[in-house]
């Protein structure tokens, strides 16, 4: 373990105590004990942070557990990260797998890997092309989902909700297998209890209720009830049990 003024780096196995640092780098197996404030936190080995994290930039490419909340400007996860508290960042990009117990709040969230959240997810822009499991509400101005695995969410609410069939089908069996490995199997579709938005476009979606101003139910959808106020289009391959147009009284 070598230590520079205001920066800390663990490259074998080691531990540092929390505090304020410029850069913290863990490339072996490392542990941070206590609350950590840093400009940069990079973990490429196996890391564990026992305490709150507040950092401008957080990069996880190994496997890391955070036992408390994570605050930052930018967070990138290409390995696997587990956060037992909340995640509050401006930008979150995940191409690996991320598991959050306390909910996520971000301005921009993009996930091409797997996302699992026990609470709510709120963002201005939410883009997912992998799979996810969100136990609570997914709320964003723009929700863009390119289905790339099993997607499960209790509720989606926002201005524009766009769910498309993912491009993974064209990428062949290997890719399909990889996705199944990541998501624990399951078919590539979106399952939701409720979807509410002003402009809603859905494909390969199974939902109890969909409400919106302009609603398009595309191929592969099975919807219990659709309530719309302006327009509704249902593709030939889609199933909708009940449709009702809301009056503007």
């Amino acid at each position: 373990m070598s230590e520079r003024a205001n920066s800390a780096s663990i490259s074998g196995a080691g531990r540092i105590s929390g505090g304020t640092y410029d850069r913290v780098t863990i490339s072996g197996a490392g542990k941070v004990i206590g609350d950590l404030a840093a400009n940069e936190l990079r973990i490429s080995g196996a890391g564990k942070v026992e305490g709150k994290v507040r950092a401008r930039e957080i990069v996880v490419s190994g496997s890391t557990t955070f036992t408390d909340s994570v605050h930052g400007d930018e967070m990138r996860v290409s390995g696997s990260a587990r956060i037992e508290g909340r995640v509050e960042v401006k930008e979150l990009k995940c191409s690996g797998s991320i598991k959050v117990h306390g909910g996520i709040s971000a301005q921009y969230l993009k996930s091409s890997g797997h996302l699992q959240v026990d609470g709510d997810v709120s963002a201005e822009i939410f883009k997912a092309s992998g799979g996810f499991q969100i136990e609570g509400l997914l709320s964003a101005d723009h929700v863009e989902i390119a289905i790339g695995g099993a997607c499960l969410v209790r509720e989606i609410g926002g201005e524009r909700i766009d769910v498309r069939r993912g491009g993974w089908r064209e990428k062949g069996i290997l890719f399909d297998g990889l996705i199944k490995l990541f998501t624990g199997g399951g078919t590539a579709e979106l399952r939701a209890g409720l979807i509410e938005g002003d402009e809603v476009h859905l494909e390969d979606t199974i939902a109890d209720t969909v409400r919106g101003k302009t609603v398009e139910i595309g191929p592969g959808c099975k919807i219990g009830t659709v309530e719309y106020s302006e327009s509704l289009r249902v593709a030939s391959g889609a199933k909708v049990k009940n449709k009702s147009r809301l009056g503007s009284e």
């Binding site: 709040s105 709320s139 609410g157 926002g158 209890g193 002003d198 409400r211 919106g212 009830t225």
Partner: peptide, 28 residues
């Protein structure tokens, strides 16, 4: 609009506790 309602909720302008979920004949 829905967009506004959800946005205002996210910004904390409408408290979480005011959102009361009930089962009705048509679902949640």
């Amino acid at each position: 609009s829905y967009g506004q309602l959800y946005r205002w909720k996210r910004k904390g302008l409408i408290p979480e506790e005011w959102f009361i979920r009930r089962s009705t004949f048509t679902g949640q």
